[in-house]
């Protein structure tokens, strides 16, 4: 069953056609990689799904509801969360508070003012911090973490909400090979309850954790399908041997 269906999405920035009639379907509980040369429209597509950009034409259907014109916060409330390419954590808050902030989005303003959510999520946060190997940094300001740990914290912030669709924009950028491997190990268990769309330049990483891959080139879908299909695709080979 399709969790997300993107129908003929186009997006133009000035004269640049960033996305051109893109069609993609994402099934429930699958990991989907988005690859392609620089400027192929991967991040634009991810941001259009998340609501950072609004599509010029086409529609985005998430859980059978049209979210094309929904704001980012509404999309997030519906279960669609984005991890930014450049780490977007709250540097002056502790690691614990970053996660607390991610969890209390559904509380009313009055509940927040009366601090009713203060004690609700302790166990959940500790559990996620343990899973993401951040437990020893629970009381550290997020801005004082290493780059790799900041990336994990941001992933933890979007994962802790148990989203149904997670959008990760280059989650391993700037990480060491060891950290990349651990990031993959952190993401795999998420398949039990959520789907993933990952934009990543590290093809080995994509190959290791994704079920399907879509290759974008110049704003168009060049090929989409299983890893084997992409690996043997002549069109993909041509793009990657001539232009990457």
């Amino acid at each position: 069953m399709n969790l997300l269906k993107i129908n003929s999405i186009s997006k133009k920035f000035g004269v640049l056609q960033a996305l051109n009639e893109v069609n993609i379907s994402i099934k429930k509980n699958t990991f989907h990689g988005l690859i392609g040369p620089n400027g192929s429209g991967k991040s634009t597509l991810l941001k259009t799904i998340a609501g950072a950009h609004y599509a010029d034409s086409g529609e985005i259907i998430f859980k059978n509801s049209n979210i094309t014109n929904n704001s980012p916060e509404l999309r997030s409330q519906k279960g669609l969360n984005l991890k930014f390419q450049i780490t977007a954590i709250l540097p002056q808050l502790t690691v614990y508070d970053n996660l607390l902030l991610a969890l209390q989005t559904n509380h009313s303003i009055w509940e927040l003012i009366s601090s009713k959510s203060k004690y609700l999520y302790y166990e959940k946060i500790i559990e996620v911090l343990e899973n993401f190997k951040l437990i020893k940094k629970v009381d550290t300001l997020a801005g004082e973490l290493s780059h790799g740990l900041q990336q994990w914290l941001e992933i933890a912030m979007v994962v802790v909400k148990k989203p149904e669709l997670l959008l990760l924009d280059e989650p391993t950028a700037g990480m060491s090979p060891q950290e990349r491997q651990v990031t993959g190990e952190l993401l795999v268990p998420l398949k039990s309850y959520c789907s993933l769309i990952i934009v990543e330049h590290d093809l080995d990483f994509i190959k290791d954790i994704c079920d399907y891959i879509t290759v974008l080139d110049q704003g168009k879908v060049l090929e989409t399908g299983s890893i084997e299909k992409i690996r043997t695709s002549k069109k993909v080979q041509e793009v990657y041997t001539t232009r990457v």
Binding site: S71, P72, N81, F84, A88, I89, L90, P91, T105, K161
Partner: peptide, 13 residues
């Protein structure tokens, strides 16, 4: 600190 992050977490900033 980062109102964009808050929007994408679901807050109506």
């Amino acid at each position: 600190q980062n109102e964009n992050r808050l929007s994408y977490l679901g807050y109506k900033v």
